[in-house]
Amino acid sequence: MEKQSNSNNFYEVYEVFSRRTFKSDMQHQFSLLAPNQEMAFVMAQENFMRREPVVDIWVVKRSDIRKLQPEERASISRLDNKDYRLTKGYGYLKKKWRQYEQQVLDEKEIMSWGGVQRGTTDRK
């Protein structure tokens, strides 16, 4: 987005963030147009805080928010595979464990074969 100067446009875009409880994270709610920061704050309070229970509100001029440029995104991409750090990387273990359990013979199954008795060995 291009920066808009105050001389060309009377209004600036502001982003409104709020937090419902002291332990919750700030969440983006909406954008608004206002001539200055004080008016933007009043408008955010009137349009949002009277409808939703909040404990804190942030009003930030959009031009003051910096985002990553495409060339910066490429520089922070992961250089190696770290799937082992993500829980989804272990999803295959449940299936593998189930297969292992199906292959294990338990004592009841062995005894049901009939030819084998407990405590004796078959010598030939």
Rank of each mutant, 00 (worst) to 15 (best):
K88D: 03
E15M: 11
R78G: 03
V54H: 08
K3H: 10
G91K: 15
S77P: 00
S31H: 08
R85H: 08
D25S: 08
K124T: 13
S24W: 04
S24E: 04
M111H: 03
R20V: 05
M49P: 03
V60G: 04
L86M: 11
G114L: 05
Q29P: 00
Y84K: 08
F17R: 13
I76M: 11
A74P: 00
V55T: 00
S7W: 10
A44Q: 07
D83E: 03
K82F: 03
Y14I: 06
I57S: 07
K23R: 08
R19Y: 01
E38L: 06
R62F: 08
N81Q: 08
K82P: 02
V42P: 03
F10I: 10
L33N: 14
M26N: 09
L68W: 12
R19E: 04
K3W: 06
E46I: 01
R73M: 01
S5L: 13
E12M: 13
F17Q: 12
V59F: 14
Y100E: 07
R51L: 03
F17M: 07
R20H: 10
D83P: 01
R73L: 06
K94W: 00
E12H: 09
L105T: 06
Q103S: 01
A34F: 15
W97F: 05
N9R: 15
Y92D: 15
S112H: 05
G91I: 15
I110K: 14
K108N: 02
N6Y: 02
Q102K: 15
L79N: 12
L79Q: 15
A44C: 03
T87R: 13
Q69S: 14
R19N: 00
G119P: 05
F41P: 00
F10N: 09
R98K: 15
K67G: 04
Q4T: 11
R118Y: 13
V116C: 04
R19G: 01
S75Y: 12
V55P: 02
T87L: 13
Q103N: 08
K82E: 04
D80K: 11
L32P: 05
S18V: 04
D64Q: 15
R20D: 08
V54R: 11
I76C: 09
K3I: 10
L93K: 15
W58S: 07
R51A: 01
R66A: 01
N6S: 14
I65Y: 12
R118A: 07
K94F: 09
M1N: 09
M49S: 07
G119R: 12
D64Y: 13
K67R: 12
S112E: 07
D64T: 11
Q29V: 03
M43H: 10
G119Y: 12
S5H: 06
W113Q: 09
V116W: 14
H28D: 03
Q27P: 05
P35Y: 00
S24T: 03
F10M: 11
E107Q: 02
S24L: 02
Q37A: 00
Q117A: 10
E109T: 10
V42M: 15
H28K: 10
I57F: 08
Y100C: 09
S63Y: 06
A44F: 06
K67A: 06
M111P: 02
L79S: 09
R19K: 06
S112W: 01
R118S: 10
K3A: 03
L79W: 09
V59A: 14
S31L: 04
T120E: 14
D80H: 15
L79Y: 04
L32C: 12
R50M: 05
E15W: 08
N9C: 05
K124H: 09
T120N: 11
W113P: 01
F30T: 12
